[in-house]
Design a protein around this nucleic acid. Structure first.
Lengths: 129, 129
DNA sequence: CAGGATCCTGTTGGATACTG
DNA sequence: CAGTATCCAACAGGATCCTG
C-alpha cells in the first residue's frame, strides 16, 4: 500500500500533504488564538472573542471565524434576538485537533526560550510548561 | 503555577505561543517538503533536493534551507571540493519535531478526502493512511 | 555545483466607514 | 451586536540573471 516514492512524487507536496492540510486550517494570524479560546468548551460570543483578542479588527475576526466554520472547526449558533447574539463553539473535528496541537506545543515549549509560555492556550497548554 | 488568564492575556498570543513557534518553523511553501525529504535520514545534496522539489527556484530553496538551519532544524555540511558539494541532514531538534508532525498528519489524514495521502512525507507518514 | 542580487507580483492582513 | 464594503500596506514568494 505504501506506494513508491519517485522524484516526481514531491511535486504536489503542498496540495496533498495532510500536515499542510492541518497547518493551513490553523494558519493565519488569528485562527490559533480563536481555537485556543474556544478550547475551554464554553460557547463564546463574537463580542467576547473580539474583546479578548486584542488588536483584531471586525473584518479579520469575522473572516477567520467564517473560514474556521467552513473548515468544520467551529460551530456558529445564531440566536434571533434583539440585540443579535451569536455564539461560537468547537465542533468535534475542532476538538479533535487539540491533542495534535498540544503535541506541537510540548515540542515548542522544549525549544523556545524558557519564559515564553503560551499565554493564549487553554489550561492544558499552560500546564505543559 | 498556572497563571490566571485575563482578557489581556491573549494580546501577544502570536508572539508567545509555542504552537506558533513550531508552525512558523515548518511554515512557508517549501520547509515541510524539505523536512519530509530529510526525514529519511540520508544526507542529501542541494542539487538532489532541488531536483525532487519540482518547481522550487534556487532562491527559494537556498532561503528555506538557510532559515531551517538558523532554526536549528537542519545541519549543513560543506565539503570543499571541486565541484562544490553540500549535504543537508536533520539535526536532533529537527528529528524531534517529526513525531508531533506525524500526529498532525494522522489528524489531517482522518479529515482529508480519502485518496489524498501524503506523497511527500516519509514512509511512516504514508503508513498512517 | 550551490547559491546570491534584483526586480516584480499576488496574497494576507489592516484602517476606516457603514449596516441589518 | 455582529458583522460588510472598500481601499491600502506589507510581505511572502517568484522570474530572471549573475557568480565563486
Amino acid at each position: 500500500m505504501s506506494k513508491k516514492i519517485t522524484d516526481e512524487t514531491y511535486a504536489g507536496a503542498n496540495l496533498l500533504c495532510p500536515i499542510r492540510y492541518a497547518i493551513d486550517i490553523v494558519g493565519g494570524k488569528w485562527k490559533l488564538p480563536i481555537i485556543c479560546m474556544l478550547a475551554s468548551g464554553l460557547p463564546t460570543r463574537y463580542s467576547s472573542i473580539k474583546r479578548k483578542l486584542t488588536g483584531v479588527t471586525n473584518m479579520m475576526l469575522a473572516q477567520s471565524l467564517k473560514e474556521l466554520e467552513a473548515a468544520g472547526i467551529v460551530h456558529r449558533e445564531q440566536y434571533n434576538e434583539v440585540p443579535p447574539r451569536v455564539e461560537y463553539t468547537l465542533t468535534d473535528k475542532g476538538k479533535s485537533i487539540l491533542p495534535p496541537l498540544l503535541k506541537l506545543a510540548e515540542w515548542g515549549a522544549d525549544y523556545m526560550h524558557e519564559d515564553k509560555t503560551c499565554a493564549a492556550f487553554c489550561d492544558k497548554c499552560q500546564s505543559t510548561k
